[in-house]
């Protein structure tokens, strides 16, 4: 959803237009759930957090600053909800990630560079995805949160700083460190399979 569509949807939500809330939930549910899941690594928590985020938005749409990006505002609420949730939880076992095909940025579309009739390629791609998840688990929570927000949720460095209550310099530092660590973790992973081989 581009900036223009986001603004229109936000305006319709504020106006209480019938159907706008459902449209809004349909447009963002996967990304909100996905972010909550990445932060908690637990399906039930991610579901609970994502629903509470939508309820907060429904209740508090009047406080949304229309010159802000709707998605940034939404991610900020999600991160805060997830952090609150984690703070309240004394112990939480790691849940294995659900095995899903598809790409992060385009959530419902199977990867077309991995032929389904090529088990070797599929296995290679699955291995790479697992390595990526493992690499993300090996960096600190703060580094991971900054990386997730910048890399998968398209928040600018400034927006991340505002969301997490950090200085811009700290955000840059966390992001730089996270990339360096991920680079090291992924060091032995072969480049993703592409055409020509």
């Amino acid at each position: 959803m581009d900036g223009l569509d986001e603004s229109r949807l936000a305006a319709r939500l504020i106006d209480g237009e019938p159907g706008a809330f459902r449209e809004f939930v349909d447009a963002y549910k996967k990304r909100i759930y996905g972010l909550a899941y990445e932060l908690t690594r637990n399906h039930a928590d991610a579901e609970d957090i994502s629903q509470s985020v939508f309820i907060k938005v429904y209740r508090g749409m009047g406080t949304f600053q229309q010159d802000a990006r709707l998605s940034s505002w939404l991610y900020r609420i999600t991160v805060n909800a997830a952090l609150d949730h984690l703070r309240k939880r004394p112990f939480f076992p790691q849940e294995k990630p659900l095995s899903v095909p598809g790409r992060f940025a385009d959530d419902s579309v199977p990867r077309d560079d991995v032929p389904r009739d090529d088990p070797g390629r599929e296995a290679e791609a699955a291995l790479l995805r697992r390595k990526i998840d493992e690499a993300l688990e090996r960096i600190s929570d703060r580094e991971k949160t900054v990386f997730l927000l910048r890399h998968y949720y398209d928040l600018s460095l400034k927006e991340i700083a505002e969301t997490l209550g950090l200085t811009l310099g700290s955000v840059k530092s966390y992001l730089f460190r996270s990339i360096k660590k991920l680079q090291k973790e992924l060091g032995e992973v072969p480049a993703p399979s592409g055409p020509g081989g």
């Binding site: 996905g34 899941y37 990630p97 899903v100 790409r103 992060f104 959530d107 890399h151 998968y152 991920l182």
Partner: peptide, 14 residues
């Protein structure tokens, strides 16, 4: 290259 590799992350999708 690391960033592009990280872009291959799968979405979590129930």
């Amino acid at each position: 290259r690391t960033l592009l590799t990280m872009g291959r992350k799968a979405a979590v999708d129930p």
